[in-house]
Write a protein that binds this DNA or RNA. Structure first.
Lengths: 118, 118
DNA sequence: ATAACACCTGAATACTTGTTCAGATATCAA
DNA sequence: TTGATATCTGAACAAGTATTCAGGTGTTAT
């Protein structure tokens, strides 16, 4: 392993790490849009409710104590970012989490937030 | 291993996974605040610039093509979320990334964004 | 066909957030 | 002390976003 960075003056995290270049405006925009979607408490509550399993819009609305309309609007946003998928069955629409990325993001953020202030 | 959820109808990601309860309003709020900070393209550009190593405010401003004032405002936000740390030396203030969480978040998001639409 | 149900959508309002400008603070050099 | 440099901050404006309300679509039951 090269020690030019890792051994002595590593005052800064990740120098030479996985990013190591200034993001283009376009890439930065895409990142921001994605994380912006996760920048709303009601969407986090909806996402966390879906960790319990698939749910209809009405059930979700009841679970997170929002109107169905508000939930529906937020679900559209989550759909756009492909964080949830849905399935029509009868007159109901069942939503569920699309993949596990949301868990990893949740855990990574939790760790960060729970870190001592050093 | 219990198979009541995992074996047959796993249409939904992560049911019974690491969250598995509706987030409290407070926790959801904290999550949203954190991710909201990452919901701005200029902040991503600043963070990515810092992956190259520590930088002064003026250098950062030049690197990301923003005014020093704008950079300073954004650095305060990043400081508040403990994403960057800083060190005064002489009349300059050197900023750098505080820890590696930002890399993991970046990679996780990249993977999600690069996923095919299935 | 009609009514009830489940969900979605557009438009308007209210709220939040980013950027700019002007000026403040703090450090260094002469 | 004076002037130059480097950064920070508060207030105001502009821009973006969430929520509500009213009404729309599509499905099921009678």
């Amino acid at each position: 392993m090269s020690d030019s960075v890792s051994s002595q003056s590593k005052a800064c995290a990740g120098a030479g790490g996985p990013v190591s270049a200034i993001l283009s405006v376009e890439k930065a925009q895409r990142m921001a849009e994605f994380f912006g979607v996760l920048g709303d408490p009601n969407r986090w509550r909806i996402l966390s409710a879906l960790t319990l399993g698939e749910m209809r819009v009405g059930e979700l609305a009841e679970a997170v104590e929002m109107t169905e309309s508000a939930v529906s609007h937020q679900l559209r946003v989550l759909r756009t970012m492909r964080l949830v998928s849905y399935q029509k069955r009868g007159r109901s629409v069942y939503y569920c989490l699309k993949d596990n990325h949301i868990f990893n993001l949740y855990q990574e953020a939790s760790e960060h937030l729970d870190e001592p202030d050093d």
